[in-house]
Amino acid sequence: MMRNLFERTGEKTLGFLQRLGRASIFLFHVLKGFPIVLTRPKLLLDSLYSVGVLSLLIIVFSALFVGMVISLLGYVTLVDFGAEQSLGVLVALSILRELAPVLTALLYSGRAGSALTAEIGLMKATEQLASIEMMAIDPIRRVITPRFVAGIIAVPLLTLMFMVVGIYSGYLIGHGWLGVDEGSFWAQMQSKVQWNYDILNGLLKGFIFGIAVNWIALFEGYDAVPTSEGVARATTRSVVYSALIVLALDFILTSIMFVEV
């Protein structure tokens, strides 16, 4: 019994390490193909459209409501202390440092990451990747690399959109509905939010999450068992792993970026 447990733990661990190794080699090949996005920008633009532009609506919509909720909740708390003039700071900092990068990455993995995994997995299941390879074309370079580069460009840009829309919707609720003074809302924000500390760190988070989410999504697709069940499993794994990795990375990055012990 005990021995069985050890054996299974060992097997799982070895399996995990093997996958990690394959994923690393995969990433190396993806990056090695980078010149193709410079020589054939059309491939990059097509991918950017499908992962970036098509994700825009869900990002803007979520940012709108998240900004409004933060503004409402923040006001309720601050008004007890007579500090509602600081609402702008609260909205801006919570969105810039935390909510924009994390929620964008999570929404992106649900909207675009899952689609990437399913697309690549199905291309594998229907032998499209094998046929590309038999045409003497490297499928990683031709198919995966443009999608990867597009993804890591799209996520920080979407994060930026989230920031802008979230803060502005917070302002609409704070000023328009709750009656916080417009001047102090923006002025407090201006004095407390630092460009290179809050905004750039938020975008850096977005960039790192973008690498993680796109790497996971593309690798899960490429490594999927080429059957309909295998692709379904890979798609689920892609979204679940992305969420877990993003949240774990978020903790690490926050503790490095914003906490001085």
Partner: peptide, 13 residues
């Protein structure tokens, strides 16, 4: 491989 052509069972278009 440029000198090879392969017809896959599924077509693989």
């Amino acid at each position: 491989r440029k000198q090879m052509g392969m017809l896959f069972q599924s077509g693989a278009l």
